[in-house]
Design a binder for these strands. Structure first.
Length: 206
DNA sequence: CATGGGATTGACT
DNA sequence: GTCAATCCCATGC
């Protein structure tokens, strides 16, 4: 099951929180989206703010298009293009809770903690094997697939904060986190408290 | 054509 | 807390 193009053909500030709890899959790996940020051509932090260029033209394409770019020369960051064709807007996927292909994610990431496999925008693309060759592909029928919220995520709470790692338009509260998820990236937004770490019963003396 | 700045992460003091 | 790695591309000469 894949979300239709119409899901993305709405204001990016509606799509970004609605994507929290949905699933993202690539190859044999998948996760539940637990953190997103909205970007729109009207504000300076959005790559589309400079208009249509070789880098940004994908942001102006049809809703549901995948935008992947390289950050700091090292990491690939993945976005889903929103709003009508001709408007530059997208949702940055910032964190996932791993669902499938977890063994492969561990191999790609080289970390032991499952919470750290996809707890950042560069981490999740590494875990899912998302690279720049996916830029311009289609999130409805392409290799990257976005599915609706599983039943247990239907009533996920959203904690809102300001966007991370930007200098321009940094005051806008356009970051959306799944309440309680331990896979949300740092720093946590105000009012966010992670659910208690799952405990393993340990026999004690006494 | 040269330059500079990132929507980050991990290692280190 | 600091800092370097390293690629793409927007910008300016």
């Amino acid at each position: 099951m894949t979300l239709p193009a119409a899901f993305y053909d709405r204001p990016v500030l509606e799509v970004a929180p609605d994507l929290v709890g949905c699933t993202l899959a690539h190859g044999d790996t998948a996760g539940v989206i637990v953190e997103t940020e909205a970007y729109h051509q009207c504000e300076a932090a959005c790559h589309a703010h400079v208009g249509v260029t070789a880098r940004t033209h994908v942001l102006f394409r049809a809703p549901g298009t995948v935008y992947v770019y390289r950050s700091y020369g090292i990491h690939a960051l993945v976005n889903l293009v929103c709003e009508a064709e001709g408007i530059g807007a997208a949702v940055l996927i910032r964190a996932l809770e791993p669902l499938a292909g977890i063994r492969l994610m561990h191999e790609r990431r080289g970390v032991a903690e499952e919470e750290q496999l996809c707890s950042g925008p560069g981490k999740l693309t590494q875990a899912l094997g998302i690279e720049l060759d996916l830029n311009g592909t289609d999130a409805i029928a392409g290799p990257l697939r976005v599915g609706p919220r599983p039943p247990e995520w239907e009533e996920v709470g959203i904690v809102i904060g300001t966007r991370i790692g930007i200098t321009k338009a940094a005051e806008l509260p356009w970051r959306f986190c799944a309440a309680g998820s331990r896979s949300v990236s740092r720093p946590w937004p105000p009012g966010f408290t992670p659910a208690p770490r799952r405990r393993v019963a340990v026999p004690r003396e006494g």
